[in-house]
């Protein structure tokens, strides 16, 4: 009975998804909002531009306030999960991790961190940005927790980074409000497209988001792996 019910739910969802996706006019003419984005985000004299990818411009500059909301939701989710796992019994491990896996993790872990930092520093030039970079850092922390059980992560550092980066995001937004009259106004100008130092506040915001997401999710991994 339960299976049939689940099957019906999955089938309805799949059909709905198929119907909706097949009716989205991908690339067939633009709505009013899209037109505005296309005309303004490509114009190089506009301060709202500068990234090589139009999506990055839209996500960070036009929809930057939403990003603040997303980061807040993520913070709430991480806190809720750590509350959920608080006080549950710890799983006993029966055998030591292999020496080879330990050594391999020790060698690979810093490169995962480096890749995460690379992705959010170059967020305005290549696909990627703050969220993927932060999650990649968190997966590195997860790997080292799984393989080196005696590893102790700097938990207080995670908290400090998380808090200060959240504050920095709001401060950057407020400076934009003072200088240009809108929250997250690009007060640094677009610069020359394609350079590392360009696109105004996009790289700053991406570094802030990347560090914040990375610290948050690493704290989540720590809460679930290392019991109190």
């Amino acid at each position: 009975m339960r299976h049939i019910f689940a099957l019906i739910v999955v089938g309805t969802l799949g059909l709905g998804l198929f119907y909706t996706l097949s009716h989205i006019p991908f690339g067939k003419g633009l709505s009013e909002v899209s037109k505005y984005y296309v005309e303004n985000a490509i114009d190089k004299n506009d301060p709202h531009a500068g990234a090589t990818n139009i999506v990055t411009d839209i996500v960070v500059l036009y929809r930057g306030f939403d990003t603040l909301g997303e980061v807040t939701v993520l913070f709430l989710a991480a806190t809720g999960l750590s509350v959920f796992f608080f006080g549950l019994k710890k799983k006993e491990y029966t055998c030591e991790p292999s020496l080879i896996v330990k050594r391999g993790t020790g060698i690979i872990f810093p490169f995962i961190l480096l890749l995460g930092v690379y992705i959010f520093v170059h967020g305005h030039l290549t696909p990627g940005g703050g969220f993927p970079g932060g999650v990649i850092i968190a997966t590195g922390v997860l790997l080292i927790y799984l393989c080196c059980r005696d590893y102790k992560a700097p938990h207080s550092l995670f908290k400090v980074i998380e808090g200060s980066m959240g504050t920095l995001f709001v401060i950057v937004g407020l400076i934009g409000l003072i200088v240009g009259g809108s929250f997250l106004f690009n007060f640094l100008g677009a610069g020359k497209t394609g350079e590392l130092v360009s696109a105004g506040i996009i790289p700053i915001l991406y570094i802030v988001i990347g560090l914040k997401v990375g610290a948050e999710l690493s704290g989540l991994v720590k809460d679930t792996m290392e019991d109190v």
Binding site: T105, G106, I107, F109, P110, L113, L114, L115, V117, Y118, V121, H122, I144, C148, Y151, P154, E195, L196, V197
Partner: peptide, 28 residues
């Protein structure tokens, strides 16, 4: 990774690699 030798890339690279090395050199 960056495949370029511009001044700002090298500068950011030095900062990032020193910062990560400070945390991970014991395991590496």
């Amino acid at each position: 990774l960056t495949a370029s030798l511009k001044i700002e890339e090298i500068f950011v690279g030095i900062i990032v690699s020193l910062g990560i090395a400070l945390f991970t050199f014991e395991n590496f």
